[in-house]
Design a protein around this nucleic acid. Structure first.
Lengths: 217, 217
DNA sequence: ATGCATCTATCAATGCATGCATCTGTTATC
DNA sequence: GATAACAGATGCATGCATTGATAGATGCAT
């Protein structure tokens, strides 16, 4: 369903991938605060491994823009700036609008709508369980499902690398302003309804309104 | 000017970065053919270094989608499929159109036009010198300059990681059908003229026509 | 004697080399 | 045709070299 990169990682995965996944979650859930200097050695020790896979994990984290790699110094946990938030969401919106527009009458929104409904339910459950990261993850999958319907593999790839940043952003929005959770959920429901009705025209405007309403209120 | 990733790499750069740059050019200029199994050991030997930085370079190459990393097996040089070509160019067009549209009357196209003129001259020189990779590189910078004018940092990042793939695509188009070089150049000139006249409206359609004309003729 | 700039020694972190374990595909053997 | 040994590749651990930052010492001017 196009989930976050670490959703496929388990105990049998290469240690480097596990390290990246672990560190990513630590950063998103703010156990590593922005500005912190993260070293290969501590990452290695945290998962009882050596520096070699830790270094590989660092490269992943930089690719996800969760850290900034400073040569010969270390990895500094990045900050989610307002500019990044704006640019990131603008790209997501662009992808979504493009995907929906490319959905001509021949395929339609029906199969998408079904998946959105499932993901909407996941969001509901995450909210009830108080699982903020779970919600952020489902939120990502929700938007990713829309974008994926466009059938552009390159966009899929780019979205995947944007995934952790988007999840972090959503997580932060919820932590900073818990009331936005309701708005977020309601608008997702509205988008799902729209998809079920197959109203392609109204999708673009609603997507943009959704972003304005929830992230720049 | 937003060049290809390896244009900043020199002899003082980390060996891992030099390896990635070297291998990328080898692949683009088809000295490593698609389907070839590329091993860490040969990459290391080629630049007289060890496997550790070679492994790091492999991760870069995979990020650029020049190779596909198969766990416990090796790196296989990818093929530029027609689907990839379509998707890649669709994304580039989307970015370009978005950038030009976000250019409201307040800033305008003038500063962009000046840079485009310079890059157009670079392309001309590359053609005369018979430097195909040089042309592909200038072609990338040309389109990148348009996209960069949109001022979206996330798009810039994504474009940068797309850079090597785009360069490879352009290189291949020229090798396969040298006549397209003229068309490519002419259309770039037309785009530059348009930018100098500040005609934002006509940009979108021309960008799309440019792609159709040169890449799907 | 004190304040300040500079220089140096030290340390922590990366960058890289090397060696071993493990896994996968292949070939030889029955 | 199944199976077992083998070879070649990655995955990871470990050790050394190199570099950038910092704290302390040193010298000079005030």
């Amino acid at each position: 369903m196009l989930t976050l990169p670490w959703d496929h990682i388990d105990d049998s995965s290469p240690i480097a991938a596990r390290m990246a996944a672990w560190a990513a979650r630590e950063i998103i859930e703010r156990r590593f605060e922005p500005g912190t200097l993260l070293t290969e050695a501590e990452l290695a020790e945290a998962l009882q491994a050596s520096r070699t896979p830790a270094r590989e994990a660092m490269l992943q984290l930089e690719r996800w823009r969760l850290v900034r790699l400073v040569p010969k110094k270390g990895a500094i946990v990045t900050t989610v700036t307002s500019a990044e938030r704006r640019d990131l969401l603008a790209v997501r919106a662009m992808f979504e609008v493009d995907a929906v527009q490319s959905l001509t009458t021949d395929d339609g929104l029906e199969p998408v709508a079904a998946d959105l409904r499932v993901l909407l339910d996941q969001q509901k459950q995450a909210v009830e369980a108080g699982d903020t990261l779970g919600f952020a993850s489902a939120d990502y999958s929700f938007h990713a499902r829309i974008i994926r319907s466009g059938g552009n593999a390159v966009i899929d790839e780019m979205l995947t690398t944007m995934g952790p940043r988007l999840a972090r952003l959503t997580y932060q929005v919820i932590i900073d302003r818990p009331s936005s959770l309701e708005t977020l959920f309601d608008e997702h429901a509205e988008l799902t309804d729209l998809a079920e009705r197959g109203d392609v025209e109204a999708f673009g405007p609603l997507v943009r309104r959704h972003i304005d309403a929830t992230h720049f209120a």
